[in-house]
Each structure stands twice: as C-alpha cells, then as structure tokens.
C-alpha cells in the first residue's frame, strides 16, 4: 500500500468509519428517512446532490471527498425548501436558537432547545 500515499491526487482511506462526525450521519439519515417516507424520489435526490457538488467545484472546492457531506447537507436543505418541507428562514432562526440554547446551558447539562430564545431575528449577541 506504500505507493498509494504517494499519489496526491486521489484521497485515500482505510476501511474505517463511514462517517467522520455525528452530524454527517444525521444528515445522511434524514435524507434516507425523508425518501423512505416518499417525500422525494431518489432520482430527485441525486440530481440535487450532483448540482450542489458541481456548484461547489465551480466555487473552488477541491472536492476531495472530505467536503462531501457539506454538499450533502446543502442539497438536503435546498430540496427540503423546494418540496415545502422547511424553508431557509425557519432554518436560520432555528440554527440561532440552538446556538443560544448551548450558550445558555451550564456545562455538563443536556442541551434542550427551549433553553434558546425563540430564535427571533437579532436576539442573538453573536
């Protein structure tokens, strides 16, 4: 396997864990769950994902496979928006609410969404 490390253009991996971080697994699972529920077809999904990957490449992403689940999440957000499952306003507001929930929760306690404010625009200090 030694020569493999010498080929810089192809990223390598061993047969390691399939997800590098928990959010990658969550994003993957959400997509499969929504598809199983019949909310979009797999053709629609791969078309959206291909589009996000192509867009990221145009914007300079080296696209070495490590950014793959970022494209995956962008595709899932876009397709959810298009299918009316969620929209970018509520996503942005909910993301802020989660961040505040973390900041308001003492270290070591479980973080509950209700610990964040209701995600109103401008309610966050950061």
């Amino acid at each position: 396997m030694a020569q493999l490390a010498e080929s810089p253009s192809l990223p390598r991996d061993e047969e390691g864990p399939v997800f590098r971080e928990p959010w990658e697994a969550q994003a993957f699972g959400l997509t499969v769950a929504l598809h199983k529920k019949g909310l979009f077809s797999w053709e629609e999904w791969t078309a959206q994902l291909s589009m996000e990957i192509a867009r990221a490449q145009r914007q300079g992403d080296a696209d070495l496979g490590d950014s793959y689940y970022r494209h995956w999440l962008a595709a899932l957000e876009a397709l959810s928006n298009r299918k009316g499952l969620s929209n970018s306003d509520e996503l942005a507001s909910r993301t802020r609410q989660w961040r505040e929930a973390y900041l308001n929760t003492p270290h070591g306690r479980a973080v509950e969404l209700s610990a964040g404010l209701d995600g109103r625009r401008g309610s966050s200090e950061d």
Partner: peptide, 13 residues
C-alpha cells in the same frame, strides 16, 4: 455551524 444546521433541520422535520 454545520452541526447546528443539521440539528435545526432535524428538529424542524
């Protein structure tokens, strides 16, 4: 941020 975005989407869905 990316993990928060996933949490946001998941909790809404």
């Amino acid at each position: 941020d990316i993990a928060l975005r996933v949490k946001a989407l998941e909790s809404l869905l």
